[in-house]
Simulated scan of single mutants.
Amino acid sequence: MYDYLARLQLSERLIGIMTNLACALLILLIGIWLAARLANFAQRAMTRAKFDVTLIGFLRNLIYGVLIAVLIVMALQQAGVPGAPLLAALGAGGLAIGLALQGSLSNLAWGVLLIVFRPFRIGDFIRAGGNDGTVESINLMHTTLVLLDNSEAVVPNAKIGADAIINFNRRGTRRIELRVGIGYKVDIGKAMSSVQQLFEADARILTDPVPGIWTESLGDSSVNLVLRAYVRSGDVWVVQADLLRAVKERFDADGISIPFPQREVRLVDKAGNGE
């Protein structure tokens, strides 16, 4: 009789354990499905609200991650794992992981800050982490830049956050600056007038701020002029190259010389000096 009762109690315990495990598995399966649906719903809602693309992806993944974490805790409790030891184990595990991944956590923290405060967005041309390039993607751990030669740089977010970030696109316009030397015998006013006409002839050069040309310095063989003008951010490289060529062609047409450094070499005949 005692053996029968013991076996009956064991069977009931096994049935209870199996039932709890089945319920925990069911919670996981249904919960994962619901978490994905809720995260996608939040993503669509943020898209309709015209949130930033980078922020949408980050918040969607954050919502999904939090839901999965809560789901795992619920499933473990349903399976019979006590809550207090579970939380203690999770805390100890989190501390150990944090100590082992200090660099990665620094990248993660800066990734969150970059996404939340948005000093730059996808498509911006920036200087960050010692690199100049167009932002292709912003992840929690790193930022991907396409450099000027079309190579790809994957820059850790901690390196970007630890240095100054220069965003060349944020204002919508950029200043181009050229330096040109003219001969000392050239009329400076004539040279400036020629350049001013080039400014007025190019519709890509903005009139506000007003473009200008100034005398920068008196060099060894030339009077050095500096040209400054503002253009839209997307036109800066093309306009700068076109303007430099136009200045050269206009100076040639107007007879304005662009001198180059010259050296005078003297040969001394030692024999002729009686040495």
Rank of each mutant, 00 (worst) to 15 (best):
N167I: 01
N167G: 02
N167P: 03
R170S: 09
R171E: 12
R171S: 14
R171G: 13
R174D: 09
I176N: 00
I176P: 02
E177D: 06
L178V: 07
L178F: 05
R179V: 13
R179G: 12
R179I: 15
G181Q: 12
I182H: 00
K185E: 15
V186M: 08
D187N: 11
I188N: 04
M192Q: 07
M192H: 04
S193M: 15
S194I: 04
V195F: 10
Q197N: 11
F199I: 00
E200F: 15
A201W: 15
I205V: 13
D208C: 03
P211N: 09
G212S: 07
I213S: 03
W214Y: 11
W214G: 00
S217Q: 09
S217N: 12
L218A: 12
L218Y: 15
L218I: 10
D220M: 12
D220P: 07
D220R: 06
S222N: 14
S222M: 13
V223R: 11
N224R: 05
L227I: 13
L227A: 02
L227D: 00
R228G: 09
A229P: 01
Y230H: 09
V231I: 12
R232T: 07
R232S: 08
R232W: 02
S233A: 14
S233F: 14
S233K: 04
S233E: 05
G234D: 13
D235R: 12
D235L: 14
Q240I: 06
Q240A: 10
A241V: 13
D242P: 12
R245L: 10
A246C: 09
K248L: 13
